[in-house]
Design a protein around this nucleic acid. Structure first.
Length: 920
RNA sequence: AGACACGUAGCUCAGUAGGUUUAGAGUACUACCUUGACAUGGUAGGGGUCGGCGGUUCGAGUCCGCCCGUGUCUACCA
């Protein structure tokens, strides 16, 4: 074994071994209990980000844990076709070739997307492998695969027949860049600096003006009313009259509507029903004309004066403002914070736009989805996330499911020449069903479905629905969904609706909601901010130059380049070192405490890398001992140290089990960290060293001890495998000849179980030895006695049990503390010493030639002070009658004991103080 | 504006049905140690009036209220 653990040498090797051996494949034929998790499908053409890394670490830990605990574990893997994102990428590729998708035509274009999917689709799946995720690759799914498309088709048709899918003409969120609608959830509302312009609208045939305030002056070309509050005394008299709209010179009515707030602005509102959601509603109430002034690409259409036609939105705004200025109709301009709706993919400003779209009526099916959470068939963890869920579900509006894209599930609807719509699985089917002969021309709806429509079917469509129920019956409902809170409404709620509706089961029994990973300053990681980190760069490392390159390539705003560069240099002056997958996974697990936001700290990764190295070297030590031992024989281990370390191991097992059942990955990680470092390495191995070097120990006893070391190591590897799969596999395989497991891999070995009590007396003995050693070390440390300096020690007031322990473990104490002489004496004859008590026993280190008295005085005073503070607080409690009366008896007793102990201890120290003071 | 979180050592975080730790861990810091598993190490140590104020209680980092600060989500007044 190498001196230092090098993850890069082993990771891909073991993953390949696992995958080729089929260890991660579900076993539907087995009679084991099942445990199933669905991967939240990542974008097929996307790349891994920290969120994926975090989530994969958590899911994989759970899955491996369950698999090792004897479950038939299925981690269903797959990807999402990500309609908009993928289409955007391919369109951009075409753009660089100088062609548009229209040049290619729909069929060719889709071919190109498939090509791109094939060529880049492996990126994400390769990355998932690098994380060590034990997914079942034999069942890899894709939302656009034939099977899943079949499921989508079936669902759409059924919902249509149930009248839950319908077409409607409404204002929708329109992305002028991508030229498609978006659902409400795909809108990012950002607060930006804008202006509030006050426009003067002349009242027709009067010299008076109404002043309206607007943040979007260009829409005035589509105004069809001015509204005031019916109770507003200032304007009551104008209601029913009209104003003459500047520029277009259209006459528009002055109407009264409660919606208008007298207090805000001037109390007059321009109404543009075609381009504002609120105005649209007002328009409906008042039967106003709806004038759409925009083309699909955001330019002005023929509804506006000639000189405006064809202008884009921002030019139109400038021109409107300058015209108004010329006409002296621009009252004033003031700076104003406006909330701008932007497409979450394109980033372009969205327009409310009147079009005919397909909608899903979610009123009924949302009720069922609420009920299953209320009745706890499906539960959120942490529970308070159900508030987010309920809040969203109660306010839920019909879901706009059509998208004006080419990449996606094309809507199975056909139109005849009169526009009559037929919905069915194919044109042929529809003709048959409706007795339409070849004469009747049918044209298919060009739109595709929202990607989330197919993702909503994920839990059951990946398990073979509608073709077969075999897997569905076995693995559904899935056990837990592991996801971020940001997609509770986007995805979780829709799965709950679709699944309860179609399968009449919840999609998952538990919804474990984890936090989101931010950068070290608490900022959300995003491409545009230039603070993204690729998890693989933490695993493999990356130099500064490449990191900067990665962060600034393909940036939407080139302006940011310099800033991102500097910020990256500042944060990673030497790039990122390679830490390996196990260290990264441990870091992720240790951050999963249940908090909402998680700041990613490289210092933690470094700490866990060191931890991996620690485990590596512990194994290396064991290996070396075996190499140096003649005639090693494999037997069942026994002995004091073996009893003790197994007892400590049991505590770690229990803590880990409890923590994982509560999704406290941080506590689980901590228990393993503490066991390996603070018990196994700091004590067990140190004790073993002494025993193995001991002259007084028989070879057969050493042989037993070596067996203990092998078995405890093997058990430790199984305990920590779910958290750090690669290093544990590497060591486990290295030791295979020694531990002689029947299994091929630690990945399919069983998770260690808590045993019946190990020789508890032995375990207690070792804990006592640890305390003895720590106590003396404290004195040596504080007195600045060099660790290598030998000391003499005196023991007073030892009872028979103490004497037995000292005698029995003399060698451990002597070696670890460099004690050269140890005597039992009675109270009277003690020389001036530093003192430490263990139970009733006093351990004395004579000052003579070792310790300067004044230093010891300082140490004693510090201790007295500390103990006195505590004693004071306990005394005041015990003097309080209310405390005695109300507190549990057990606690009162405890505090009394503590109080006695403290007084006694303080008393001893004070005597010491006096004794030593004599020397000064 | 509303809802929901969060504010504990320089930094990143635990503190799990109010009283067992004398508020903990990692990291950073200080001193000593280059002793053959590991300097990606060892031993010892310093560092927090648990955001502020008030309340409930015998007892509050832990429960309640208000305030200050931070963040996220939702809804927006043109």
């Amino acid at each position: 074994m190498n001196k230092n653990f090098d993850p890069s040498e082993i990771e891909t090797k073991w993953y390949k071994f696992w995958e080729e051996s089929g260890f991660f494949e579900a076993k539907p034929e087995s009679n084991k209990d099942t445990f199933c998790i669905m991967i939240p499908p990542p974008n097929v053409t996307g790349t891994l980000h920290m969120g994926h890394g975090f989530q994969n670490a958590l899911i994989d830990t759970l899955i491996r844990f369950k698999r090792m605990n004897g479950y038939d574990a299925l981690w269903q893997v797959g990807t999402d076709h990500a309609g908009i994102a993928t289409q955007m990428v391919v369109e951009r590729q075409l753009e660089s070739e100088g062609i548009t998708k229209e040049d290619l035509g729909r069929e060719e274009f889709i071919k190109r997307v498939w090509d791109w999917k094939e060529s880049s689709g492996n990126t994400i799946t390769k990355q998932i492998r690098r994380l060590g995720s034990s997914v079942d690759w034999s069942r890899e799914a894709f939302t656009m695969s034939p099977d899943m498309s079949q499921a989508v088709l079936e669902v759409f048709i059924k919902l249509y027949k149930e009248d839950l899918i319908y077409q409607g003409e409404r204002l929708v969120n329109w992305d002028v860049e991508l030229q498609t609608t978006l659902s409400d959830l795909e809108v990012d509302n950002t607060e930006e600096n804008g202006s509030l312009w006050h426009l003067k609208y002349q009242i027709t045939n009067e010299s008076k003006y109404l002043i309206v305030a607007t943040t979007r002056p260009e829409t005035m070309l589509g105004d069809t009313a001015v509204a005031v509050n019916p109770e507003d005394d200032r304007y009551k008299k104008y209601i029913g009259k009209s104003i003459t709209l500047p520029i277009t010179n259209r006459q528009v009515p002055i109407i009264a509507d409660e919606y208008v707030d007298e207090e805000f602005g001037t109390g007059c509102v321009k109404i543009t029903p075609a381009h504002d959601f609120n105005d649209f509603e007002i328009g409906k109430r008042h039967g106003l004309e709806i004038i759409n002034i925009l083309n699909k690409d955001g330019t002005l259409n023929e509804e506006v004066p000639k000189s405006f036609i064809g202008l884009d939105r921002s030019s139109a705004r400038k021109k409107v403002l300058s015209e108004l200025e010329k006409l002296n109709l621009l009252e004033k301009t003031e700076p104003y914070k406006v909330t701008i709706p932007r497409g979450d993919r394109s980033g372009s400003i969205l327009e409310p736009f009147l079009t005919k779209q397909w909608f899903m009526d979610v009123n009924e099916i949302s009720k069922k989805a609420i009920d299953v959470v209320k009745s706890e068939e499906s539960t959120f963890h942490p529970k308070n996330y159900e508030n987010t869920y309920f809040a969203w579900m109660k306010e839920i509006r019909d879901w706009c499911i059509s998208r004006q894209l080419w990449w996606g599930h094309q809507i199975p609807a056909w139109y005849d020449k009169d526009g009559k719509v037929y919905v069915g699985s194919s044109e042929e089917e529809i003709r048959k069903e409706n007795n339409l002969d070849e004469q009747v021309k049918l044209k298919r709806d060009e739109d595709v479905l929202d990607t989330w429509f197919s993702s909503a079917l994920w839990t059951f469509s990946t398990l073979g629905w509608p073709k077969s129920r075999k897997l569905l019956d076995r693995y559904h409902p899935t056990d837990v969904l592991v996801t971020g809170y940001d997609i509770i409404s986007l995805w979780v709620s829709r799965m709950l609706m679709m699944t309860t509706h179609f399968i009449n089961e919840v999609p998952f029994r538990k919804i474990f909601v984890h936090g989101l990973i931010n950068d070290s300053s608490g900022q959300k990681m995003s491409k545009s901010k230039g603070n993204i980190i690729d998890p693989l760069d933490i695993i493999d490392g990356i130099d500064l130059k490449s990191l900067i390159e990665k962060r600034i390539s393909g940036l939407m705003q080139p302006k940011m380049e310099e800033k991102i560069k500097n910020q990256t240099i500042k944060e990673f002056p030497e790039g990122i070192k390679p830490y390996g997958t196990d260290a990264l996974r441990l870091t992720f697990c240790s951050l999963a405490s249940g908090s909402r936001e998680v700041r990613f700290d490289f210092k933690r990764v470094e700490g866990y890398r060191n931890f991996c190295n620690k485990l590596w070297n512990a194994s290396r030590f064991i290996q070396m001992q075996l190499d140096n031992f003649e005639n090693f024989e494999r037997t069942k281990p026994s002995g004091i140290l073996d009893d003790w370390i197994n007892a400590r191991m049991d505590i770690a097992i229990e803590k880990t089990n409890n923590a994982l059942s509560d999704y406290r990955f941080d506590l689980a990680t901590q228990s393993i960290y503490e066991f390996i470092w603070y018990e196994l390495c700091d004590w067990y191995i140190e004790f073993c060293k002494i025993n193995l070097n001991s002259q007084s120990l028989e070879a057969s006893e050493k042989n037993l001890l070596l067996n203990s070391m092998i078995e405890i190591l093997e058990k430790t590897l199984r305990l920590s495998h779910p958290f750090m799969p690669f290093i544990t596999e590497e060591i486990w395989q290295n030791f295979k000849d020694l531990h002689q497991s029947k299994n091929e891999s630690v990945a399919i070995s069983s998770f260690p179980q808590k045993k019946e009590k190990y020789g508890s007396k032995n375990a207690d003995d070792i804990e006592w030895v640890k305390q003895f050693i720590s106590g003396v070390r404290n004195i040596k440390g504080e007195m600045k006695i060099s660790p290598s300096k030998t000391i003499t020690s005196i023991i007073q007031s030892a009872n028979e049990e103490d004497k037995r322990k000292v005698k029995k473990h003399k060698e451990l104490l002597f070696e670890l503390l460099k004690i050269k002489e140890l005597n039992f004496i009675d109270e009277k004859n003690a020389p001036p010493s530093a003192i430490f008590t263990l139970g009733g026993m006093k351990i004395l280190i004579p000052l003579e030639g070792l310790i300067e008295p004044d230093k010891e005085i300082t140490r004693i005073d510090k201790l007295i002070n500390k103990l006195q503070t505590e004693l004071n607080s306990i005394t005041s409690k015990l003097n309080n009658d209310n405390f005695i009366e109300n507190a549990p008896q057990e606690l009162v007793n405890q505090q009394r004991d503590r109080s006695n102990y403290l007084s006694n201890e303080i008393n001893n120290l004070e005597i010491q103080h006096k004794e030593i003071n004599k020397l000064i």
